[in-house]
């Protein structure tokens, strides 16, 4: 039998995690339950669903960050005025995850910790240069999201740690955001390619850009080559430079959902689109 723990405070939760590092953490269950029939039953579950206070969304004016509690569901994320105003592409990504039932149950913390290469919010967190708040009985630490994914479904999360919040810098007004999910169909679909970008445009040229893709590698990736290639260029030239820089930067795989050629071609098109649509 699988043991079941349901902590009712963050303190209880980290204590449970420290006591039972082998238990699976259930933060909504939208991925965990889908795979329940395909893997051995876990020794135990730590259920964080509706952990009091875990789903709060607030603005930390001092740091200029949006603080999104790990327990926030996609429905809460997409509807929250602060997210819509300060991280519109995160709200947009939330609207395209699964469908309504999944959005009501899946959480941002679950998506981050589960760290699937096709996790729908993850390229957005990379492009927005988000940080994670990780906590354990040892205390709380912050980690740039960029350093969190260490490989295929592996992360920098300690065996006793939980993701407690996602911290998203508030975008400056001059920064233009881009998000596109390409799935197998319109809803309830697994992504074939995702693209996200935050582009600082000044005097008609790109000053700085953060460009991230999902479903094209073993983990969500920032494309430094693309980011470097576009600096100082006007949108039309940046688009062509971005397209050209994608090819050497990723080597997507073929699987039952799509092909390597298609993923690469679409990634190139989207890399170009994120700049060409600025003009």
């Amino acid at each position: 039998m699988t043991a079941y723990l349901r902590p009712r405070s963050l303190a209880e939760a980290v204590a449970a995690r420290a006591a039972e590092p082998g238990y699976l953490v259930l933060a909504g269950g939208t991925d965990l339950m889908v795979n329940a029939n395909h893997r051995p039953a876990p020794a135990g579950l730590i259920d964080l669903w509706r952990l009091p206070g875990a789903g709060e969304i607030s603005l930390d004016a001092e740091r200029g960050q949006l603080a999104i509690g790990a327990g926030a569901t996609w429905l809460q994320v997409q509807r929250h005025p602060l997210v819509v105003r300060h991280a519109a592409i995160l709200a947009a990504a939330a609207r395209e995850i699964g469908a309504l039932q999944i959005q009501a149950r899946g959480t941002i913390g679950g998506n981050v910790a589960n760290s699937s290469p096709v996790g729908d919010s993850l390229p957005v967190l990379l492009a927005l240069e988000a940080e994670l708040e990780l906590c354990s009985v040892r205390g709380t630490r912050r980690l740039p999201y960029r350093e969190f994914c260490t490989g295929y479904r592996t992360t920098a999360l300690g065996a006793d740690e939980l993701v407690s919040a996602v911290l998203v810098p508030v975008a400056a007004p001059a920064v233009r955001l881009f998000w596109r999910k390409v799935g197998t169909r319109r809803a309830q679909s697994i992504s074939k390619v995702m693209a996200a970008a935050a582009i600082h445009l000044e005097d008609g040229v790109v000053r700085r850009a953060t460009v991230a893709f999902g479903a094209v590698a073993d983990r969500p990736v920032r494309l430094a080559g693309v980011e470097a290639a576009v600096v100082g260029l006007a949108p039309a030239q940046a688009a062509e430079a971005a397209r050209a820089a994608v090819a050497g930067a990723i080597a997507p795989i073929s699987d039952v959902r799509s092909t390597s050629d298609y993923r690469l071609q679409v990634a190139e098109n989207l890399a170009a689109r994120m700049f060409s649509e600025l003009s």
Partner: peptide
Amino acid sequence: VIYKDGKVANANMTNCIVPTFAD
């Protein structure tokens, strides 16, 4: 339905997709 070595390689509703109302 994708066959690989004679076996159905996408035997689940995630990958053997049909249109939803959104489609």
